[in-house]
């Protein structure tokens, strides 16, 4: 069976995102970890493009790779790094954490394999506008208008909360 371009793109993006996630979790230098997470975010944006979620891919690149990651890098530069990079990377209990992560991945893999194996393959959308900005925007501003406003309220609360938490106390 010939491998189509879509399959090739998916397997490249999946392998690259898993590899960059592993590197992000295991690198000693936190700045290197953050840069591998940047690679992960960009590859995940490519996967969003493959499933026809163009708007989500754009938001992923702008918000995650653009804003959130720069914020992390800013804080990594702000805090004391050389002493952090010198110490051990993992806590004493890291085998437990690794066991929990591997067990979760195995269980999730097994669960979807049982339930979703016979579902039809992802094909090109019958409705070509299903993932476009217009379709997402129509749903977002009609049916999900209230959650959208609540999301803006959450962001406002987070801004105020971050300022209150991080400021220097007067006393």
């Amino acid at each position: 069976m010939a491998i189509s371009a879509g399959q090739l793109a998916f397997y490249y993006l999946a392998a690259a995102s898993v590899a960059s996630a592993i590197l992000a979790v295991t690198r000693r230098n936190p700045v290197h970890s953050a840069l591998w997470v940047l690679a992960l975010f960009l590859h995940v944006a490519g996967i969003f493009l493959l499933v026809g979620a163009e708007f989500l891919a754009a938001v992923q690149v702008i918000v995650y790779a653009g804003a959130i990651l720069v914020f992390y890098l800013f804080f990594l530069m702000l805090l004391d790094l050389p002493s952090e990079a010198a110490g051990p990377r993992f806590g004493a209990h890291w085998p437990l954490g690794a066991a929990a992560g591997l067990a979760f991945a195995a269980v999730a893999w097994y669960a979807h394999g049982a339930e979703l194996a016979p579902t039809p393959a992802l094909t090109a959308a019958e409705d070509p506008s299903a993932g476009t900005l217009a379709a997402v925007g129509m749903v977002l501003f009609t049916r999900f208008a209230l959650p959208f406003e609540i999301a803006s309220l959450i962001l406002l609360a987070a801004i105020v909360g971050a300022v209150v938490v991080a400021r220097k106390s007067e006393s």
């Binding site: 189509s4 879509g6 399959q7 998916f10 999946a14 995102s17 898993v18 996630a21 592993i22 992000a24 979790v25 936190p30 992960l40 996967i47 493959l50 499933v51 952090e84 110490g87 051990p88 990377r89 993992f90 806590g91 209990h93 890291w94 437990l96 954490g97 690794a98 929990a100 992560g101 591997l102 979760f104 991945a105 195995a106 999730a108 893999w109 979807h112 394999g113 979703l116 194996a117 579902t119 393959a121 992802l122 094909t123 090109a124």
Partner: peptide, 28 residues
């Protein structure tokens, strides 16, 4: 095309890696 199970497997593996990192790393 790629079956949806492959996307979910990728999601499970990425989530497991994130869980390992969250439980294992020392740097907050």
């Amino acid at each position: 095309m790629v079956p949806v199970g492959a996307y979910l497997a990728l999601s499970a593996v990425l989530f497991g890696i994130g869980l390992i990192g969250f439980l294992g790393r020392r740097n907050i």
